[in-house]
Amino acid sequence: MTLQRREFLVGTAALLATPAIAQARPTLAFSAIPDEDATKLMERFTKVAKYLEGQLGVSVQFVPVKSYPAAVTAFRNNQVQLAWFGGLSGVQARIALPGSVAIAQGDEDKEFMSYFIAHQSTGLTESKDFPMGAKGRSFTFGAKTSTSGRLMPEFEIRRNTKMAPEAFFSRVGFSGDHTKTVELVASGAFEIGAVNFTSYDDMVKSGKVDPKVARLVWRTPTYPDYNFTVRGDADQRFGAGFTEKLKAAILGMNDPAILAAFPRKKFIPATNADYAPIEDVAKQLNLLD
Protein backbone atom coordinates (compact mmCIF):
# COMPACT_ATOMS: atom_id res chain seq x y z
CA MET A 1 0.00 0.00 0.00
CA THR A 2 2.82 2.39 0.94
CA LEU A 3 4.54 1.63 -2.31
CA GLN A 4 1.41 2.29 -4.26
CA ARG A 5 0.82 5.58 -2.50
CA ARG A 6 4.36 6.72 -3.14
CA GLU A 7 4.10 5.77 -6.80
CA PHE A 8 0.89 7.66 -7.00
CA LEU A 9 2.30 10.83 -5.42
CA VAL A 10 5.29 10.83 -7.75
CA GLY A 11 2.92 10.33 -10.66
CA THR A 12 0.65 13.17 -9.59
CA ALA A 13 3.55 15.54 -9.15
CA ALA A 14 4.74 14.78 -12.66
CA LEU A 15 1.23 15.18 -14.01
CA LEU A 16 0.71 18.54 -12.41
CA ALA A 17 4.12 20.01 -13.10
CA THR A 18 3.78 20.41 -16.85
CA PRO A 19 0.79 22.72 -17.18
CA ALA A 20 2.20 25.07 -14.57
CA ILE A 21 5.04 25.84 -16.97
CA ALA A 22 2.62 26.20 -19.84
CA GLN A 23 0.61 28.92 -18.04
CA ALA A 24 2.06 32.02 -19.69
CA ARG A 25 1.40 35.73 -20.27
CA PRO A 26 -0.97 36.73 -23.09
CA THR A 27 0.44 35.31 -26.27
CA LEU A 28 -0.31 35.84 -29.91
CA ALA A 29 -1.06 32.33 -31.08
CA PHE A 30 -1.12 31.73 -34.79
CA SER A 31 -1.77 28.78 -37.02
CA ALA A 32 -1.72 27.83 -40.67
CA ILE A 33 -3.43 25.35 -42.94
CA PRO A 34 -1.25 22.23 -43.21
CA ASP A 35 -0.82 22.54 -46.98
CA GLU A 36 2.64 20.99 -47.20
CA ASP A 37 4.52 18.37 -45.23
CA ALA A 38 5.09 18.96 -41.52
CA THR A 39 8.87 19.57 -41.79
CA LYS A 40 8.29 22.37 -44.27
CA LEU A 41 5.58 23.95 -42.12
CA MET A 42 7.68 23.94 -38.95
CA GLU A 43 10.65 25.44 -40.81
CA ARG A 44 8.47 28.17 -42.27
CA PHE A 45 6.46 29.15 -39.23
CA THR A 46 9.05 28.97 -36.46
CA LYS A 47 10.93 31.62 -38.45
CA VAL A 48 7.78 33.71 -38.78
CA ALA A 49 7.02 33.38 -35.04
CA LYS A 50 10.51 34.53 -34.11
CA TYR A 51 10.32 37.47 -36.49
CA LEU A 52 6.89 38.62 -35.28
CA GLU A 53 7.98 38.30 -31.66
CA GLY A 54 10.83 40.72 -32.36
CA GLN A 55 8.58 43.18 -34.15
CA LEU A 56 5.50 43.14 -31.92
CA GLY A 57 6.91 42.82 -28.41
CA VAL A 58 4.45 40.05 -27.45
CA SER A 59 5.31 36.39 -27.29
CA VAL A 60 4.25 34.59 -30.43
CA GLN A 61 3.48 30.91 -30.59
CA PHE A 62 2.89 28.74 -33.66
CA VAL A 63 0.14 26.16 -33.14
CA PRO A 64 0.37 23.31 -35.66
CA VAL A 65 -2.93 21.68 -36.68
CA LYS A 66 -3.70 18.47 -38.56
CA SER A 67 -6.35 19.64 -40.99
CA TYR A 68 -7.75 22.63 -42.83
CA PRO A 69 -11.01 22.76 -40.81
CA ALA A 70 -9.03 22.53 -37.56
CA ALA A 71 -7.22 25.74 -38.56
CA VAL A 72 -10.56 27.43 -39.18
CA THR A 73 -12.15 26.32 -35.91
CA ALA A 74 -9.05 27.14 -33.85
CA PHE A 75 -9.32 30.64 -35.31
CA ARG A 76 -13.03 30.95 -34.69
CA ASN A 77 -12.65 29.78 -31.09
CA ASN A 78 -9.85 32.23 -30.31
CA GLN A 79 -7.29 29.47 -29.77
CA VAL A 80 -5.31 31.34 -32.40
CA GLN A 81 -5.75 35.00 -33.24
CA LEU A 82 -3.92 35.01 -36.55
CA ALA A 83 -3.81 32.44 -39.32
CA TRP A 84 -2.26 31.83 -42.72
CA PHE A 85 -5.24 30.55 -44.66
CA GLY A 86 -5.82 29.47 -48.23
CA GLY A 87 -8.38 31.30 -50.34
CA LEU A 88 -11.28 29.02 -49.42
CA SER A 89 -10.35 28.37 -45.78
CA GLY A 90 -9.96 32.16 -45.35
CA VAL A 91 -13.47 32.71 -46.73
CA GLN A 92 -14.81 29.95 -44.42
CA ALA A 93 -13.08 31.55 -41.43
CA ARG A 94 -14.34 35.05 -42.14
CA ILE A 95 -17.89 33.73 -42.56
CA ALA A 96 -17.57 31.74 -39.33
CA LEU A 97 -16.23 34.75 -37.42
CA PRO A 98 -17.77 38.00 -38.70
CA GLY A 99 -15.49 40.97 -38.11
CA SER A 100 -12.27 39.14 -38.91
CA VAL A 101 -10.15 40.65 -41.65
CA ALA A 102 -7.70 39.56 -44.32
CA ILE A 103 -4.71 41.86 -43.85
CA ALA A 104 -1.97 40.57 -46.11
CA GLN A 105 -1.18 38.20 -48.94
CA GLY A 106 1.90 37.16 -50.83
CA ASP A 107 2.71 39.06 -54.01
CA GLU A 108 2.04 35.82 -55.88
CA ASP A 109 -1.36 35.32 -54.21
CA LYS A 110 -3.24 38.03 -56.10
CA GLU A 111 -2.65 36.06 -59.29
CA PHE A 112 -2.25 32.53 -58.05
CA MET A 113 -2.66 29.41 -60.15
CA SER A 114 -2.70 25.64 -60.02
CA TYR A 115 -0.61 23.36 -62.15
CA PHE A 116 -1.93 20.15 -63.63
CA ILE A 117 1.00 17.79 -63.56
CA ALA A 118 1.26 14.37 -65.23
CA HIS A 119 3.55 11.37 -64.97
CA GLN A 120 5.82 10.96 -67.99
CA SER A 121 4.23 7.63 -68.91
CA THR A 122 1.03 9.47 -69.92
CA GLY A 123 2.89 11.10 -72.80
CA LEU A 124 1.10 14.38 -72.04
CA THR A 125 3.13 17.55 -72.55
CA GLU A 126 2.60 21.18 -71.63
CA SER A 127 -0.06 22.98 -73.64
CA LYS A 128 -2.12 26.17 -73.53
CA ASP A 129 -5.38 24.20 -73.48
CA PHE A 130 -6.88 21.98 -70.87
CA PRO A 131 -5.34 18.48 -71.18
CA MET A 132 -8.31 16.57 -72.59
CA GLY A 133 -5.93 13.64 -73.11
CA ALA A 134 -6.12 13.08 -69.37
CA LYS A 135 -9.59 11.53 -69.78
CA GLY A 136 -9.94 8.10 -68.20
CA ARG A 137 -6.70 8.38 -66.22
CA SER A 138 -6.23 8.45 -62.45
CA PHE A 139 -6.18 11.87 -60.79
CA THR A 140 -5.47 13.27 -57.35
CA PHE A 141 -6.51 16.50 -55.69
CA GLY A 142 -4.71 17.85 -52.59
CA ALA A 143 -6.70 18.49 -49.39
CA LYS A 144 -10.50 18.44 -49.57
CA THR A 145 -10.88 22.19 -48.93
CA SER A 146 -7.66 23.38 -50.54
CA THR A 147 -8.15 26.27 -52.96
CA SER A 148 -5.30 25.44 -55.33
CA GLY A 149 -5.44 21.69 -54.80
CA ARG A 150 -9.22 21.18 -54.99
CA LEU A 151 -11.52 24.15 -55.48
CA MET A 152 -10.05 25.81 -58.58
CA PRO A 153 -8.87 22.59 -60.26
CA GLU A 154 -12.36 21.10 -59.89
CA PHE A 155 -13.88 24.32 -61.24
CA GLU A 156 -11.61 24.17 -64.29
CA ILE A 157 -12.22 20.45 -64.84
CA ARG A 158 -15.98 21.01 -64.86
CA ARG A 159 -15.73 24.14 -67.02
CA ASN A 160 -13.50 22.53 -69.66
CA THR A 161 -14.85 18.98 -69.77
CA LYS A 162 -18.48 19.65 -68.79
CA MET A 163 -18.12 16.59 -66.59
CA ALA A 164 -17.67 15.89 -62.89
CA PRO A 165 -14.10 14.90 -61.99
CA GLU A 166 -15.30 11.39 -61.01
CA ALA A 167 -16.76 10.98 -64.51
CA PHE A 168 -13.83 12.42 -66.44
CA PHE A 169 -11.12 10.52 -64.57
CA SER A 170 -11.02 6.81 -63.80
CA ARG A 171 -10.10 7.34 -60.16
CA VAL A 172 -10.11 10.48 -58.02
CA GLY A 173 -8.14 10.74 -54.78
CA PHE A 174 -7.37 13.35 -52.13
CA SER A 175 -3.67 13.26 -51.30
CA GLY A 176 -3.98 15.56 -48.27
CA ASP A 177 -1.33 18.15 -49.18
CA HIS A 178 0.67 19.49 -52.12
CA THR A 179 3.94 17.75 -51.26
CA LYS A 180 2.13 14.42 -51.28
CA THR A 181 0.36 15.20 -54.58
CA VAL A 182 3.70 15.80 -56.32
CA GLU A 183 5.21 12.66 -54.79
CA LEU A 184 2.24 10.53 -55.88
CA VAL A 185 2.40 11.76 -59.47
CA ALA A 186 6.20 11.50 -59.59
CA SER A 187 5.93 7.87 -58.54
CA GLY A 188 3.18 7.09 -61.02
CA ALA A 189 0.74 6.08 -58.28
CA PHE A 190 -1.58 8.70 -59.74
CA GLU A 191 -1.16 9.70 -63.40
CA ILE A 192 -2.38 13.28 -63.06
CA GLY A 193 -2.47 15.71 -60.16
CA ALA A 194 -3.48 19.29 -59.41
CA VAL A 195 -1.05 21.25 -57.29
CA ASN A 196 -0.26 24.70 -55.93
CA PHE A 197 2.22 26.19 -58.43
CA THR A 198 4.59 27.62 -55.79
CA SER A 199 4.86 24.24 -54.05
CA TYR A 200 5.69 22.50 -57.33
CA ASP A 201 8.20 25.13 -58.49
CA ASP A 202 9.82 25.03 -55.06
CA MET A 203 10.16 21.24 -55.18
CA VAL A 204 11.66 21.42 -58.67
CA LYS A 205 14.10 24.11 -57.55
CA SER A 206 15.24 22.17 -54.50
CA GLY A 207 15.64 18.99 -56.55
CA LYS A 208 12.89 17.08 -54.71
CA VAL A 209 11.13 16.24 -57.96
CA ASP A 210 12.32 15.67 -61.51
CA PRO A 211 10.27 17.96 -63.79
CA LYS A 212 10.73 15.49 -66.64
CA VAL A 213 9.07 12.71 -64.63
CA ALA A 214 6.24 14.68 -63.01
CA ARG A 215 5.83 17.23 -65.73
CA LEU A 216 3.77 20.39 -65.90
CA VAL A 217 1.03 19.98 -68.52
CA TRP A 218 -1.33 22.90 -67.92
CA ARG A 219 -1.56 26.15 -65.93
CA THR A 220 -5.03 27.22 -64.76
CA PRO A 221 -6.20 30.81 -65.22
CA THR A 222 -5.27 32.94 -62.19
CA TYR A 223 -7.29 33.50 -59.01
CA PRO A 224 -6.69 35.03 -55.55
CA ASP A 225 -5.33 32.65 -52.90
CA TYR A 226 -3.49 32.58 -49.54
CA ASN A 227 -3.89 35.31 -46.91
CA PHE A 228 -3.05 36.28 -43.37
CA THR A 229 -6.34 36.79 -41.52
CA VAL A 230 -6.64 38.26 -38.03
CA ARG A 231 -9.52 38.27 -35.55
CA GLY A 232 -11.60 41.43 -35.34
CA ASP A 233 -11.06 41.69 -31.57
CA ALA A 234 -7.25 41.64 -31.76
CA ASP A 235 -6.98 45.34 -30.78
CA GLN A 236 -9.06 44.75 -27.66
CA ARG A 237 -6.84 41.91 -26.63
CA PHE A 238 -3.39 43.22 -27.47
CA GLY A 239 -3.97 46.99 -27.27
CA ALA A 240 -5.15 49.70 -29.65
CA GLY A 241 -3.45 49.77 -33.03
CA PHE A 242 -2.26 46.16 -32.76
CA THR A 243 -3.86 45.04 -36.02
CA GLU A 244 -2.13 47.86 -37.93
CA LYS A 245 1.16 47.08 -36.25
CA LEU A 246 0.77 43.41 -37.13
CA LYS A 247 -0.05 44.25 -40.73
CA ALA A 248 3.00 46.50 -40.98
CA ALA A 249 5.17 43.76 -39.50
CA ILE A 250 3.94 41.18 -42.02
CA LEU A 251 4.33 43.55 -44.96
CA GLY A 252 7.81 44.33 -43.69
CA MET A 253 8.95 40.71 -43.75
CA ASN A 254 11.91 40.95 -46.10
CA ASP A 255 14.31 38.41 -44.65
CA PRO A 256 15.10 36.21 -47.69
CA ALA A 257 15.15 33.11 -45.47
CA ILE A 258 11.54 33.68 -44.33
CA LEU A 259 10.30 34.64 -47.79
CA ALA A 260 11.98 31.58 -49.31
CA ALA A 261 10.28 29.31 -46.77
CA PHE A 262 6.81 30.30 -48.02
CA PRO A 263 7.95 30.79 -50.86
CA ARG A 264 6.85 34.36 -51.67
CA LYS A 265 8.69 37.33 -53.20
CA LYS A 266 7.17 39.77 -50.72
CA PHE A 267 3.92 40.44 -48.85
CA ILE A 268 1.34 43.02 -49.92
CA PRO A 269 -1.91 44.32 -48.34
CA ALA A 270 -5.13 42.35 -48.82
CA THR A 271 -8.82 42.92 -48.10
CA ASN A 272 -11.80 40.63 -47.57
CA ALA A 273 -13.25 41.77 -50.90
CA ASP A 274 -10.24 40.40 -52.79
CA TYR A 275 -11.58 36.91 -52.15
CA ALA A 276 -15.13 37.37 -53.47
CA PRO A 277 -14.33 35.33 -56.62
CA ILE A 278 -13.31 32.37 -54.43
CA GLU A 279 -16.57 32.58 -52.51
CA ASP A 280 -18.54 32.56 -55.78
CA VAL A 281 -16.73 29.50 -57.12
CA ALA A 282 -17.14 27.66 -53.81
CA LYS A 283 -20.88 28.30 -53.95
CA GLN A 284 -21.08 27.12 -57.56
CA LEU A 285 -19.27 23.91 -56.67
CA ASN A 286 -21.54 23.42 -53.68
CA LEU A 287 -18.69 23.54 -51.18
CA LEU A 288 -20.24 26.52 -49.42
CA ASP A 289 -23.94 27.08 -48.73
Binding site: F8, G11, T12, L15, L16, P19, A22, Q23, N77
Partner: peptide
Protein backbone atom coordinates in the same frame (compact mmCIF):
# COMPACT_ATOMS: atom_id res chain seq x y z
CA UNK B 1 -5.32 13.70 -10.91
CA UNK B 2 -6.25 13.31 -14.57
CA UNK B 3 -9.21 15.65 -14.34
CA UNK B 4 -7.14 18.18 -12.40
CA UNK B 5 -4.40 17.97 -15.01
CA UNK B 6 -6.66 18.55 -17.98
CA UNK B 7 -8.41 21.31 -16.03
CA UNK B 8 -5.09 23.02 -15.28
CA UNK B 9 -3.97 23.10 -18.91
CA UNK B 10 -3.92 26.59 -20.42
CA UNK B 11 -7.61 27.32 -20.72
CA UNK B 12 -9.12 27.76 -24.15
CA UNK B 13 -11.04 30.97 -24.46
CA UNK B 14 -14.22 30.16 -26.21
CA UNK B 15 -16.35 33.22 -26.52
CA UNK B 16 -19.47 31.15 -25.98
CA UNK B 17 -20.17 31.92 -29.60
Amino acid sequence: AAIAYVWALPRLETSGL
